[in-house]
């Protein structure tokens, strides 16, 4: 029996090499080749991240890797884990998700949840001006990946710019934008080390979450033995490996930046406090809005995730 696993990253991406390919190998070994996973990378079974959730629900693929952020209405509670400044690392965030799974699992009711993890908070790559304090960010055109970060960049005095990730390399090179906010693993993927002079690593910024979901009826069709084997190899165990793979890819991105002569900056605690102070009102508003739309106590959810 062969399960089709679809994702939209290149097959050399850390998520394929560090999570999906090892899962396929382990499952193959654990079931003596009775149950296997075939990976279809690069959007071979369908273009782009937007429809990944739909693809798994409708059975275009048996298993999909995807990003909750791309279907924000479906995963608005999960998205609370993205709240900037909550977690220092993707591993912490991943534990928080699994410790509080009962609060968010209704968002995964249409599928079988195999994995849910986070990467490390975004770093800020700047073209020719270092950012050490909020003041340094004034008037900077910054490519931001999502609406929340856009609001924060505004609150910090920057100018949020939206563009596809693949265009950021050119935009940084020519000066269309002054800076880009991106998960540290993106440095290597998009070669942003070639375009920046500075990278600030610890601004209280958002992280992204990722899922590995299985089609319900594909899951139901498995024998009890195969279900047990797959359960052993997924869940929190697989998710932590996802977070670890992102951590390593992020470190390797920062190393690459250092090697290319990019100055790595860490802001001090005073600057950190100032960033947090300036973003507080915006964040509260955002959490209120999600709470109203979903009819849940979003602040309580954020507190639970943060372990308060």
């Amino acid at each position: 029996e062969e399960l089709k696993l679809a994702h939209f990253m290149p097959s050399m991406h850390p998520m394929d090499q560090g999570v999906m390919t090892p899962l396929a190998e382990q499952l193959n070994a654990a079931t003596d080749g009775e149950l296997t996973i075939r990976i279809y990378p690069s959007g071979e079974l369908g273009k782009g991240p937007v429809q990944q959730y739909k693809r798994v629900v409708t059975g275009v693929a048996d298993i999909v890797f995807g990003i909750p952020e791309y279907t924000p209405n479906q995963f608005s509670k999960t998205a609370m884990v993205h709240i900037p400044g909550l977690f220092a690392s993707g591993t912490d965030a991943t534990h928080a998700l699994w410790d509080n799974l009962e609060l968010i699992e209704d968002e995964y009711a249409q599928t079988k949840l195999l994995g849910l993890w986070a990467n490390n908070p975004s770093v800020l790559l700047t073209r020719d001006k270092p950012v050490r304090t909020v003041a340094d960010m004034q008037g900077m055109k910054i490519r931001t990946p999502n609406p929340v970060m856009a609001e924060l960049v505004k609150a910090w005095g920057g100018i949020p710019v939206s563009m596809p990730t693949t265009d950021t390399y050119n935009a940084m090179n020519t000066g269309v934008i002054d800076a880009v906010m991106i998960g540290p693993s993106g440095i290597r993927s998009y070669k942003l080390n070639e375009t920046a002079k500075y990278v600030t690593t610890n601004i209280p910024s958002a992280l992204d979450s990722f899922y590995l979901l299985m089609n319900k009826s594909s899951w139901d069709k498995l024998s009890d033995e195969h279900k047990a084997k797959l359960t052993d190899l997924t869940g929190r165990y697989l998710s932590l490996r996802g977070a670890q793979a992102f951590y390593e890819a992020g470190q390797s991105g920062l190393d690459l930046a250092r090697e290319s002569g990019v100055e790595v900056i860490e802001i001090d605690s005073a600057a950190d406090a100032e960033f947090r102070e300036k973003m507080k009102a915006t964040l509260d508003q955002f959490i209120d809005k999600v709470g109203q739309e979903k009819g849940v106590d979003a602040h309580a959810l954020v507190d639970a995730l943060a372990g308060n």
Binding site: V50, Y53, K54, N73, P147
Partner: peptide, 12 residues
């Protein structure tokens, strides 16, 4: 489309 939460990324 609405039940799958299909929307654009930034402005939804």
């Amino acid at each position: 489309a609405a039940s799958f939460g299909e929307s654009t990324l930034l402005l939804q």
